[in-house]
Design a protein around this nucleic acid. Structure first.
Lengths: 208, 208
DNA sequence: TTGTCAAGAATGAACGTTCGTTTTAAGGTG
DNA sequence: CACCTTAAAACGAACGTTCATTCTTGACAA
């Protein structure tokens, strides 16, 4: 019989992941030492190693957590009012993702989450199993977004003679690019992405 | 008076950077040890440390080198035939960047260069001075691309009532997103980006 | 042309440090 | 008391870097 409740165990795990997140955001996965993580969480080595078998496992958990937040943002955009302007949809994805993180870490640096995401990308570029996990997640997103884009195509708002998935990947590329720009340069993104897409889509200026 | 020619010194430096590039591409900056780099270059520790004072300095050099190749690709696109279709311009940027790297490393993995670029992004997210260097480089690109996009706007191919820089940043975001996608998923990018932009821009299907 | 030599370039074992992880023992709870 | 959790010290391995030493180079005297 366990000495502490499951809820307590879960909370502890969360505490570790949150501290590790802050540490890794600040200094990357491999330039952060376990001692850095321990200092940030306020735990001892023994305590942490009860919940995570290795640094590798902790990295996986943090990366999965961060990616999960991103995926939730992408998927929530699908459930908004149908056929609203595409620029607003993309802006919404980034808004949700960035806001979510701020809530979690408590009024944190608005660049924090994008920076963590970029770290995850870098880690995925060298870690096959993380890369496979991201690929699965993105495949799922592409499927869901495919349905969304199909609706725009059938409504005559996007060309029908172009593969839906190509449009999806291009729109996702826009969001990914802006995550990068936010992470590195910190400038505001919402207005830019909305304007940029509007210009490309030749939306009638009178619509604004 | 030096005992060996400047050309020899330069070649040695290039040899180190190339070996370090391969190593860092494979395993990231901080998960690669100096011994990994030494094995890849075929040099001894002392030899390498004659050319680079520290691992940090080597990382900076490799990152600057990789970023320089990207910047060259972006800038070369500006000097192509004016006002050709924007989707082709973006495809051209990525083509140039990816081909350039293949030449250098000799018929290497087509994902190698995008992966290195993503590693550079991750490093920039935690390294202030590298981040500042990237910001300078991107600022310059934005300026040059601004002139390009202004031409499209004045030719009536893009809305004039939207800040040029917002369009530039959005187009750059597309390329950055596809670098990420290529790095992680390896799928072909040229066709996708061309199609995706065409769909967004509502280009008349008959044009194809 | 050849032999000599000073100085630069390269070597690789060894250094002190810090890494991720394990062990040990005290603390706390049912 | 019985048992689990935690803290803290300790571990061997691996890290980035140095340095005493050996090799290599090219100018120059003969």
């Amino acid at each position: 019989m366990p000495r502490v409740s499951q809820a307590h165990l879960d909370a502890k795990r969360r505490q570790i992941i949150d501290g590790a997140k802050r540490t890794f955001t600040r200094n990357g996965f491999h330039a952060s030492s376990m001692q850095d993580v321990l200092a940030e969480t306020g735990l001892s080595a023994g305590a942490l190693y009860r919940y995570f078998r290795s640094k590798e496992e902790l990295i996986q958990a943090v990366a999965a957590d961060a990616f999960g937040e991103m995926r939730a943002a992408y998927e929530s955009a699908v459930h908004e009012a149908p056929l609203r302007p595409l620029p607003d949809v993309l802006t919404g994805v980034l808004d949700v993702a960035f806001r979510k993180q701020s809530e979690l870490a408590g009024a944190s640096d608005p660049q924090a989450f994008p920076r963590l995401v970029v770290q995850v990308w870098g880690e995925a570029a060298r870690n096959e199993s993380l890369r496979a996990a991201l690929r699965d997640g993105y495949d799922r997103m592409r499927g869901i977004w495919g349905e969304l884009i199909t609706a725009y195509q059938e409504a005559g708002q996007l060309r029908k003679d172009i593969p839906t998935d190509h449009i999806v990947r291009t729109l996702m590329a826009v969001t990914q690019g802006f995550i990068f720009q936010k992470a590195l340069f910190g400038e505001e993104v919402g207005e830019v992405i909305r304007d940029g897409l509007r210009a490309l889509m030749m939306t009638d200026p009178a619509e604004d």
